[in-house]
Nucleic acid binder design. Structure first.
Lengths: 139, 139, 139, 139
DNA sequence: GTGGTCTAGACCACA
DNA sequence: GTGGTCTAGACCACT
């Protein structure tokens, strides 16, 4: 059982995908936040620890953490570690609408270019939406 | 409806994913062959046309085509264009599912980071899905 | 005389200040944007060129550019260079007020800890505000 | 008003500047000596007190004090505390001006990046300047 | 021990 | 030529 302040996230890298390692790390942290496995204040593995776990260079992990710090996904405290931040994005209704439409368009265009139908897409989102523990209704 | 010999494939690129453009192009062609949108003998857009469409350098498109030619996915007929060969691309239902899940996860994670609910997301997809003229059902 | 698309910015580093090189570079770009020496679309010196100019490692320049890309200060086009972006921040009136108060508090606290009076601060801001070509009135 | 033997200095740290905390502390003491806010014999806050005030590790404060002792800026009397020595800190008007200009530039650049006008900035500073009880005139 | 900065140099992707 | 990624290893700042 997780005690707050400690992270039991399992990281893994696809060495062949061509996706940069540091981006894979960032994505896994974002996913973990999205589905509740990581929450505010939880400490990420140390740079050196994760580097050993993944068998990559510490600088590569540091780069992922640095980018997440810039993006306000984590905060780092010199000498003590890297922690999930309580990032809050404040958007008004119109801006929310614009942001959602923008990212949805990119997603649908991509899905369409792979030949997926609206039916398949909606089914998939319903499945994954529950898995990620997305809140069901707008507050 | 496709007339043989002409391609109505819509390509799209994710400029930020870190996945090389030429690999994205190849993958989209493979997906289209696998699900029947492209079949033997259909002509791909010319290098120059596709480069303009995607706003990328023609060399990048040429590289994708060259790579596909090496893999026997397409054949180039000097002077007339690039055509789908009869190489079988095997991508079963499970693999299709994995591809869709992957891009859906990225999308939902991003949406979740902005606090959007499943309800908002589904509404938005239905709206934009019609607008973007996605096919409604799987073929 | 500057032609658009070319940058005549003179960069310089204080090697002894203890301020990281990449942060000094970012700050100088931000300053140049703030006072109009750099505007949307202008190309920054190439990574290698600036590294030679400043006698530092190209990776250090690349890091500065990468951080500015994340912050939407510049956009990079693979293979062609790094350009000032047209970053726009949309904030409503309340958010504007909060943002300004926040950064002003930090500034005043710092100035006070150095012993500067309100009188000195206002004089200094008036001087520098003109120099930076800050717009005088709210639009 | 300062009574000799007690220090009313307000320290502040810029956590993001990249300037080491201990250097920031030293600089603030030097500035205070230079402009008369601190004079010979005045006691600095204890290491532990200042560490709590600034929310940093006591070792960091201790390091700043140790460095100042080496530089003869302060003397430590075992068991009773740390006191300003009679070392002269020379910081003339021009140097003061440069320090203020530096931090003001950082502030204005940031404000400019959010599109604030000189008018808004000055209003905000006047408001907050009173609230934060900045001294109104130079001593 | 923690993270941060910088160098040096290799190799890749793209124009 | 452009920028991007990764490694290896040194040294610093802070807990």
């Amino acid at each position: 059982m997780n005690t707050k302040g400690e992270s039991r996230l399992e990281f893994s890298l696809d060495m062949k995908s061509g996706v940069p390692f540091y981006k894979q790390i960032i994505f896994q942290v974002e996913m973990a936040i999205a589905d509740g496995r990581l929450e505010k204040g939880v400490q990420l593995p140390t740079v050196r620890t994760l580097a050993v776990d993944l068998s990559i260079n510490p600088n590569t992990v540091a780069r992922a953490y640095a980018e997440m710090e810039i993006r306000n996904i984590v905060v780092t405290q010199q000498g003590s570690g890297t922690f999930i931040s309580d990032k809050k994005i404040n958007l008004n209704a119109i801006e929310r609408e614009q942001v959602l439409s923008q990212i949805t368009k990119v997603y649908l265009t991509k899905a369409a270019s792979f030949g997926f139908s609206l039916e398949e897409i909606l089914t998939n989102i319903n499945d994954l939406g529950s898995e990620l523990k997305l809140k069901k209704e707008t507050v």
